[in-house]
Design a protein around this nucleic acid. Sequence first.
DNA 1: GTCTATAATATGATAGAC
DNA 2: GTCTATCATATTATAGAC
Lengths: 186, 186
Amino acid sequence: MARPPTVHDDELYDRLAEVFRTTGYEGASLGALAESTGLKRASLYHRFPDGKAQMAEAVLARVERLFEDLLEPLRTDPDPRSGIVRTAERISEFYGGGLLSCVLDTLPLSGAPEPVRRRAARVAEVWISAMADAACRAGRSPEDAREAAEDVFASAEGGLVHGRLFGDGGPFTRALARMPDLLLGT
Amino acid sequence: MARPPTVHDDELYDRLAEVFRTTGYEGASLGALAESTGLKRASLYHRFPDGKAQMAEAVLARVERLFEDLLEPLRTDPDPRSGIVRTAERISEFYGGGLLSCVLDTLPLSGAPEPVRRRAARVAEVWISAMADAACRAGRSPEDAREAAEDVFASAEGGLVHGRLFGDGGPFTRALARMPDLLLGT
DNA sequence: GTCTATAATATGATAGAC
DNA sequence: GTCTATCATATTATAGAC
């Protein structure tokens, strides 16, 4: 039977994510992925028989699990604003204050197989729907909550684009600072 | 002496841009660039002796010229709000209502040569500073104007990330709809 | 589970015919 | 200015030793 995920595996996924994050799907060569992980190319194929596509999907599955941790306050805090603020802090840390690229931006470029693109969309949907649910619970209409959540997602992702271009996480940080008011509609 | 830019050249740049836009720098192979333009790889090297990096820079130079047209109302309309609204309309059309990727997002991924990355940042700076200037002329402080302009840039670029993931330009469209109020501080 | 070796193909780039 | 032909290297992927 399959071995459960270990810390060792998660470290491997994080090394792979680093390459996919910064170079996109097609830009992430097997050589770069091997160098980043310290494994030889043939060893990567042992872990991921379907090659790069399977690696990308494993990375997205890992990111989805990480996001569940980031979103935990948003999902469970009895005080909506407090939950939003705490999740925003975790997201800011996760993205290095706005200076790291996001796989949800760079992985679904043309060249990525359709399953990879769908999986990336699913991870983004987890993030967005968690924000929309929180806004709903705080009293907003489902339509307003969904729009606000999408807008928060977009301003955060765009903040990361700005961070990559200019090495300045200001817009990303301000997007997260606006997250409570945007979701709560205040 | 050098031949001035022609419509023919601009069409070539647009075909190249299409590939860089959707696949990033490393993902844009010479084969894909040749197929998109209808030229053979050797013919591309005749036009761009320095290869892919020179093509990417030519594409960014073309985008910068296109942006000057998009930004013209913002720069010249005596009524600030009217100028912002008209530029927002042009930007929306330029990005296919939020369903097209942006070279400023996809081109500066890791793997792109430093001159390409710098040129992309310069084009983004043209856009942002034009918005900041307009906000300034409308009476906002330079600091507020700059922050607002960066935030508009980020929410628009993030809207395009959302569009690529979900095929939904809603966040992009809303970002441009907020552009007047965000820049004018109303 | 990781490695070396290998093979087929793709890629970036150049030379030279037309 | 575009093409065919070519080349060195990189890339994806597999086979098999340890």
